[in-house]
């Protein structure tokens, strides 16, 4: 039990962020018209590619003196996958939204 209390106290900043982010997500989505659900889902999907930062940290600090290690290979894949998610996600969202934009000009 005490372990839990310590854990909570040590990570309280993070826990605050988590709880408030949950409300933020609910609040932002509740106001979106269903017309935009697909681009929104796609955009949110691109943001979930934020794992790329973890990938960069990991690959960036991978020990290279051991030559081609498993960690190096996995790290490279993590960064490639993460970037695919981010870049692909944003580009495809942009493409979807182009269609809404076109109409406005007319």
């Amino acid at each position: 039990m005490e372990e839990f209390l310590v854990y909570f106290y040590q990570n309280k900043g993070t826990i605050f962020i988590i709880v408030l982010s949950i409300f933020l997500g609910v609040e932002v989505i509740s106001n979106v018209p269903s017309v935009l659900h697909t681009p929104l889902m796609s955009g949110a999907n691109a943001i979930s590619g934020v794992i790329i930062i973890g990938g960069i940290i990991l690959l960036g600090h991978t020990e290279l003196s051991e030559g081609i290690s498993l960690n190096l290979i996995l790290g490279i894949f993590a960064v490639i996958f993460g970037t695919l998610n981010v870049v692909g996600g944003f580009v495809v969202t942009d493409r979807m939204l182009d269609m809404f934009k076109k109409k406005k000009k007319k």
Partner: peptide
């Protein structure tokens, strides 16, 4: 990462 991830997580959940 925490904010982005949880934000998307909750947005996806509510959707």
């Amino acid at each position: 990462m925490i904010l982005g991830g949880i934000f998307v997580g909750s947005a996806g959940a509510i959707l």
